[in-house]
């Protein structure tokens, strides 16, 4: 088991650095290219949501990411100190509806839930919001 923590300023420009951080660890752990891409997408969507919804703007707080590698899975713990964000209140987007009437809000949370094996949001603490993402190795 190996744990690495990194803290990033919450701005959109840092999403690329966050992506590189996650991709490197997931690749080194032996996840397939598709799995690494899925993990990268889930983390990117989570961090963009933190900037958009928890901090409601750029450079208003930090995003702390802790990644723990297990033989069979990767666990990614993402913390922010912004406003509580209740993802269960975000309706899943209806991507089957006609283009003219489709509402795409909630696409990020939808991606996170679809791409990871587990996604647990916890906004119960007064100090911070946390999201725990888990992806198991298929191969």
């Amino acid at each position: 088991m190996k744990t690495i923590t990194k803290t990033f300023a919450g701005n959109y420009q840092n999403l690329a650095a966050i992506g590189e951080f996650v991709v490197k660890i997931a690749s080194d752990q032996g996840f397939s290219s598709k799995e690494v891409y899925a993990i990268q997408t889930a983390v990117d969507e989570a961090c963009a949501n933190i900037i958009d919804h928890a901090y409601k703007g750029e450079d208003l707080g930090e995003i702390k990411i802790t990644i723990t590698s297990f033989p069979d899975r990767i666990e990614i713990f993402i913390e922010d100190t912004g406003e509580s964000f209740a993802p269960e209140e975000v309706p899943a987007p209806d991507i089957t509806s006609p283009l003219e009437i489709r509402k795409e809000r909630g696409l990020g949370v939808f991606f996170i839930r679809k791409l990871m094996d587990e996604a647990t949001f916890d906004c119960s603490s007064e100090d911070c919001n946390t999201l725990t993402l888990v992806k198991f190795k298929r191969s």
């Binding site: 990268q40 997408t41 990117d44 969507e45 963009a48 283009l99 003219e100 795409e104 696409l107 991606f111």
Partner: peptide, 19 residues
């Protein structure tokens, strides 16, 4: 190398405008 949901929304928006 990477396309997030914000990029997908941009393409959906353009597709809607073109339609």
């Amino acid at each position: 190398s990477y396309l997030s949901s914000s990029g997908i929304l941009v393409f959906l928006d353009a597709q809607r405008k073109l339609k």
